[in-house]
């Protein structure tokens, strides 16, 4: 059995893995792994390339099936937990690059509803609020394809914040950013955790940019998870 480290005893505010076996193709990501960890503040999920960090994030959202065991986020299985989780994949989006950035965020704001929107103003106002929160208002009406990597990350964050989640799962938010861009993004993430009280779980190889910022590190290695506070 993989290492088990009890970091908290409040599963309703954290992540619980019970005897989880998870594979990605031929790679075994987790083998009979258990873990209980608080998800307040910023949690860095680290591991070597190909260890399965992205797969674990996707499993928390129910996008990847577990071979065995269960994952509870804030005490809920993935299908229910994802109502409270915002997600930003590694490549923010490469669809509809000619559409204004604000259209991408508006689509995320009420994208869970069927039918046509009867009242457009609340959706517009919410999208504007999210873009302001992530510092993306200045370029909200420019086509997404004309934005820099850092600007697109801010739009992706605004999308992830749609639905007012308690927790953000961010897959490599610092990848493909220069040093200044990384610093700006880290400051933005700190600001989100401080101002909104949102927990953030992120994967990244840029441990230097995150030093002193993350609350805890969850190391994914050898089919198990190890926590450092």
């Amino acid at each position: 059995m993989a290492d088990t480290e009890k970091v908290c005893c409040q599963p309703e505010r954290g992540l619980v893995l019970r005897d989880v076996t998870l594979t990605a193709g031929s790679t075994c990501v987790l083998r009979d792994a258990s873990l209980t960890v608080l998800l307040s503040g910023m949690t860095l999920l680290s591991g070597r390339n190909g260890a399965g960090k992205s797969t674990l994030l996707r499993a928390m959202l129910g996008l990847v099936p577990l071979q065995e065991g269960e994952i509870l986020t804030h005490g809920l299985p993935p299908a229910q937990a994802r109502q409270h989780i915002g997600y930003m994949p590694q490549s923010v989006t490469d669809a509809a690059l000619l559409l204004p950035a604000v259209s991408h965020v508006r689509a995320a704001v009420d994208g869970l509803r069927w039918g046509l929107p009867l009242h457009l103003r609340p959706r517009r106002e919410e999208a504007d609020r999210l873009l302001a929160l992530t510092g993306a208002s200045a370029f909200a009406h420019r086509p997404l394809g004309l934005l820099s990597g850092g600007e697109r990350q801010r739009v992706g964050l605004a999308q992830a914040l749609a639905g007012n989640p308690d927790l953000l799962l961010l897959d490599e938010p610092l990848a493909a950013l220069d040093h200044a861009g990384q610093e700006q993004t880290v400051r933005l993430l700190e600001d989100l955790t401080d101002r909104l009280g949102i927990g953030i779980v992120l994967t990244s190889h840029e441990t230097e940019a995150l030093s002193g910022v993350v609350t805890r590190v969850v190391q994914l290695a050898d089919g198990g998870l190890h926590v450092r506070v």
Binding site: L63, Y87, M88, P89, S103, A107, A108, Q159
Partner: peptide, 23 residues
């Protein structure tokens, strides 16, 4: 299309995010 509208737009613009939210 009117019935699908908003979910179709979300799934078209951000397929992974939409699936993660339960679309």
């Amino acid at each position: 299309l009117a019935f699908l509208g908003r979910r179709l737009l979300f799934a078209s613009l951000a397929p992974e995010v939409a699936r993660a939210r339960g679309v």
